[in-house]
Write a protein that binds this DNA or RNA. Structure first.
Length: 284
DNA sequence: CGGTAGACCTGACCGC
DNA sequence: TGCGGTCAGGTCTACC
């Protein structure tokens, strides 16, 4: 039980707010700190460090922690980058020195002077790898779309993409080549907020609807960031239960949505293998 | 080329 | 208690 006092779970449920929350935490803990050693398990992640990477990372200071899309970027003093993606089940854990005991699914262990940072990921859809310099970084991310939280949105670019595409809005919003950072939950929520049906095709929207949709995406991401942050701060229980996070959702994993004391049924369908929740009455 | 199904994994949960 | 089926926050690739 005492262990839990020393062991802080940074996050679970990785969508953008969790990535952001993890980053804020990392900034406080590891910025400017030197990596004394790095170890990895034999199990393979989606993308992983090789043995040469391990020795080249060792001894570096972390100069900067930032986010791109749902990736966490650690800029090292050598000019290279450690790239972390939490996948579906990844999380970073923090342990004070001497309190670390290996747990199932621990894959990467970073040792610092006073603590360890451990990457744990049961499903191993996550990534933990190295890019050798800024050029590498640029080419790795060159196919990614606009970040609604970091960039000033180029709306005419989005309009152009939408007009030349014929996929469902659900699929388009999940496509990281168009917009970056939205996951399954927030696509559902953003579509509800915009009152557009997830079944609508991209090229069926007019400019006004596209603008409305982008505004909703931005709004939902900002809101989720706020709530994601607070649900982590409220986190107390060692069994991994989170606070009232899911109570924030309008449609995701719900059977009805209530607006102005009137309730409307929420329908669950499958699109491209992922669950979609929406209100057929309210979303057109 | 664009679009879609399936692959990659483990664990939790539900009904029998 | 066990067993099979289903589902889960994300990307990538192989194939029409």
């Amino acid at each position: 039980m005492i262990l839990y006092l020393f062991k802080l779970f940074l996050t679970s449920m990785p969508e953008l707010p969790e990535v952001e929350t993890t980053i804020r935490y990392l900034v406080k803990k590891v910025n400017g700190k030197k990596i004394l050693s790095i170890k990895k398990s034999k199990k393979k992640l989606r993308k992983n460090l090789n043995l040469r990477d391990l020795s080249s990372v060792k001894g570096n200071k972390i100069l900067e922690v930032k986010r791109f899309a749902k990736y966490i970027l650690l800029r090292l003093s050598s000019g290279s980058y450690i790239i972390i993606h939490l996948g579906m089940s990844g999380r970073l854990k923090f342990y004070l020195k001497d309190s670390y005991k290996t747990e199932k699914h621990d894959h990467i262990v970073l040792e610092f002077e006073k603590f360890f940072i451990v990457y744990n990921d049961p499903r191993r859809f996550g990534m933990f790898f190295k890019l050798k310099d800024h050029e590498d970084l640029k080419s790795f991310f060159c196919n990614y779309g606009q970040d609604l939280l970091l960039d000033k949105v180029n709306i005419s670019k989005i309009i152009k993409i939408f007009k030349n595409k014929s996929v469902s809005l659900k699929q388009a919003l999940l496509d990281q080549r168009i917009l970056v950072g939205l996951g399954n939950i927030y696509v559902n929520e953003a579509l509800f907020h915009s009152r557009l049906s997830p079944l609508r095709l991209t090229n069926s929207l007019n400019d006004k609807e596209i603008m409305k949709l982008i505004r909703s995406c931005k709004y939902i991401l900002k809101l989720s960031l706020k709530n994601g942050g607070s649900s982590i701060n409220d986190y107390k229980s060692p069994d991994g239960t989170l606070g009232s996070f899911q109570n924030m959702f309008y449609v995701y994993q719900r059977s009805e949505v209530t607006l102005k004391k009137q309730s409307f049924p929420v329908k669950k369908i499958t699109q491209n293998g992922r669950s979609t929740f929406f209100s057929p009455t309210l979303q057109k």
